[in-house]
């Protein structure tokens, strides 16, 4: 595989200190490659968003390092940091809160161009903004002068994607980009992200709790629980042959119209769920490779 663009190497982040220390992530490692998507799935509080925030340099890792094209960003100089800020862009969960209500769509897309693409000047800026909107399948003539409140959730999320693309990024971190959108527009946004990934050779970190959409868009998947990645590998293999008990629990709880709740097969027994949660929450440094590229962490109790 080609060289990774962004790598988290054994990254740990803790909040608080003393007995109230919270381990948001424990020695998390993964790499993002051009033209590929990695899905990070897990329940709320499992550390997915903390990983995203560390990748965005919003949090400093407590231990471990983040490598951008092989170089640690902790030692980077100010021009490297500017370049990093251009190259790594984020799409947020809430399309309503992530645009400034007091500015037009044109403003939102002009700013990143002026800041990060100084080669585009004067009238070319307006043309570039139009191109960006067309890339995300919005009509510039209609959208440019509008304010965020005049757009639907799906349109706003498309503007957010255009804003992220404006800086010619290499990595896109998308934190639950569709969870606040309606089902009828969700697929359109996923298709758009997928197209961007393929056409611009973007590395995509796709954070979600919806494992079915992860299957749809990501080549690789990493399942997080209690700050640890408990299982990772090619998406299809992990979903078809889950090894770790938590991955199995997560998959068994995905809504499946073929199995009704009255069916004994659908039954989650709360004692077993508790056991899986307790077992999976224990820090465990060892992982085993079960098939090519498919790893799962060992568990104190035997899987099965």
């Amino acid at each position: 595989m080609s060289q990774a663009i962004l790598t988290l190497d054994g990254v740990t982040k803790t909040f608080g200190h003393g007995p109230s220390t919270v381990h948001a992530t424990r020695s998390v490692s993964f790499s993002l490659h051009a033209g590929r998507a990695l899905a990070l799935v897990g329940e709320s509080g499992s550390g997915k968003t903390t990983c995203a925030r560390m990748a965005m340099r919003e949090y400093q890792p407590t231990a471990g390092q983040i490598l951008y094209k092989g170089k640690s960003i902790a030692e980077a100089g100010s021009s490297d940091i500017t370049d990093y800020r251009r190259a790594v862009q984020m799409i947020f969960q809430d399309p309503f809160a992530s645009l400034n209500p007091a500015h037009t769509i044109a403003y939102h897309l002009t700013r990143p161009l002026k800041l990060h693409r100084p080669e585009i000047k004067g009238g070319a800026i307006r043309a570039a903004v139009g191109d960006l909107l067309r890339q995300v399948q919005l009509d510039p003539d209609i959208v440019l002068g509008k304010y965020p409140h005049e757009l639907s959730g799906g349109q706003r999320q498309r503007v957010n994607i255009a804003r992220a693309l404006a800086t010619r990024p290499e990595v896109i971190v998308a934190d639950e980009p569709t969870s606040m959108l309606d089902v009828s527009v969700r697929l359109g946004i996923l298709n758009l992200l997928n197209k961007m990934k393929q056409e611009m050779k973007l590395a995509l970190l796709y954070i979600t709790h919806d494992i079915a959409t992860a299957r749809y868009i990501a080549e690789d998947i990493a399942v997080m629980y209690a700050g640890q990645i408990v299982e990772w590998g090619p998406t299809g293999r992990v979903i078809e042959n889950p090894i770790h008990p938590y991955t199995r629990l997560l998959l068994s709880a995905v809504p499946d119209p073929q199995i009704r709740f009255d069916d004994p097969r659908a039954r989650l027994r709360s004692r077993e769920v508790e056991n899986v949660r307790r077992g999976s929450g224990v820090p465990e440094s060892e992982a085993l490779e079960y098939e090519a590229g498919h790893f799962a962490r060992k568990l104190a109790m035997e899987p099965g």
């Binding site: 697929l187 996923l190 298709n191 997928n194 494992i211 079915a212 959409t213 299957r215 749809y216 868009i217 080549e219 998406t235 299809g236 979903i239 998959l251 995905v254 499946d256």
Partner: peptide, 9 residues
């Protein structure tokens, strides 16, 4: 998107 259905890749 279905869990066991096709992917977009």
């Amino acid at each position: 998107p279905s869990l066991h259905g096709g992917a977009l890749l």
